[in-house]
Write a protein that binds this DNA or RNA. Structure first.
Lengths: 83, 83
DNA sequence: TAAAAATACTCCATAGGTATTTTAT
DNA sequence: ATAAAATACCTATGGAGTATTTTTA
């Protein structure tokens, strides 16, 4: 698991769009799709429901988002060590 | 950055030995060395002092260890989503 | 000389890209 | 027809290993 993966998930969850997340993160849309697919494989369940062409977070997705945000905040604090 | 990398660091910091850390983690000693080297590169400074053939944590190392342990605990909580 | 860490390779898996396909509006 | 996500394919980087070297007690 990488922090990048969690970051991609967090942005996608916030935007509820892989296309928007890709633009914000400066990577391609397939890269986002693949991060999410691998994350769902690791977790062993869906994080998003793909209803027609809209995204909704599943319960697992909601739970993961909470944890991911905490982890990402801690990774931010690692950055302060770099000075 | 991967959780594996932080885990390797955390064990090495606790054991103050790359050889012991490698045994505990079930990976080779060079793999541990490389994780630490890359982590030090990412952080932009030494995490350990190599005094003769003993290891000591630097101040950055101590700070990172605190953060790493928090992150690792959160990763543990992700595992509970897998059930 | 023994023990620990670093370095040098080799190999495979993963991350990323572009192009294309699928699906639903 | 458009727009979003998924899939296919290719390439490059990173992570792992074994073997070896370096360093110091």
């Amino acid at each position: 698991m990488t922090d990048k993966r969690l970051q991609v998930f967090a942005v996608a969850a916030r935007e509820l769009s892989f296309v928007k997340a890709a633009k914000i993160l400066g990577i391609s849309q397939p890269a986002v799709s693949k991060h999410i697919a691998l994350l769902e494989k690791e977790i062993g369940g869906a994080l998003f429901l793909r209803i027609s062409r809209t995204l909704v977070l599943t319960e697992k997705g909601e739970k993961l988002l909470g944890i991911a945000n905490k982890i990402l905040a801690l990774y931010q604090s690692i950055d302060t060590l770099k000075d």
